[in-house]
Nucleic acid binder design. Structure first.
Length: 108
DNA sequence: ACGTTGACCTATA
DNA sequence: GTATAGGCCAACG
């Protein structure tokens, strides 16, 4: 595993419950801004990882659950989010701006 | 080896 | 405000 994915998983693991972040935020925090797609690939590989990565807390910039289909079954991601107190409606996170968690601010 | 795709983001029209 | 274009790099067929 390259350091890039390691860092991505590390950050994803640091996301507190009930909070969400975006791929771009993680990418910028890693200094690989513009290559936010790689963060998505990293999440795709997260299933192969031994350690559990809360990928459901990572969504796109619009707060839309674009990657829910990559979970076991559609709706599972939403259920996980609602289980943590996050309100999800029509595959969109309500109060996304409030629930947004910036790794740049927390991890510094 | 080459072309296409992908859990995205920013910028211009 | 929505619509389209471009860029980024790795994995898959």
């Amino acid at each position: 595993m390259s350091d890039f994915y390691e860092s991505v998983f590390e950050i994803a693991r640091q996301i507190p419950a009930g909070r969400v972040t975006s791929y771009g935020a993680i990418a910028r925090c890693l200094g690989t801004a513009g290559s936010s797609r790689m963060v998505g690939w990293a999440m795709n590989l997260s299933h192969r990882q031994k350690v559990y990565v809360p990928a459901h807390r990572v969504v796109n910039r619009n707060g839309l659950l674009t990657g829910k289909i990559h979970f076991g079954s559609p709706g599972e991601m939403q259920e996980l989010l609602e289980n943590e107190g996050i309100i999800v409606e029509n595959d969109c996170i309500t109060n996304f701006k409030t629930l947004f968690w910036d790794p740049m601010l927390e991890l510094r």
